[in-house]
Design a protein around this nucleic acid. Sequence first.
DNA 1: GGATTGACGTGTC
DNA 2: AGACACGCCAATC
Length: 108
Amino acid sequence: MKDSFYDQVFEIARLVPKGRVTSYGAIAKALGAGGSARMVGYAMSNANIAHPKVPAHRVVNSSGLLTGKFHFSPPELMQELLEQEGIVVVNDKIKNFKSVFWNPLEEL
DNA sequence: GGATTGACGTGTC
DNA sequence: AGACACGCCAATC
């Protein structure tokens, strides 16, 4: 499954710069999938076992909420990684989300 | 090959 | 502000 939708999602996810985050919808749009934001998230389920590793912690929902944190080995890992990159997370959501948001469409 | 599913998104109530 | 509903679309069963 190399040319599947998943791999495209992984690619974009890997392109997210350190200290920045993006949303599922943004990735979907960057892929031209538009409304298939759910697929992006669904694909990230494989991110845990995907190689090379995918910085899934840099991908959140449109509200900057860490929706998928419970999918990490330790759920708190997601926030940990984000904070390590200088991203402030409060109450499971990213602070200054708009400031750290990385738009794939603008970079690609 | 139809039905189910989902780490979403946007709009309403 | 918080809860609920519907739409979208590909992968999996």
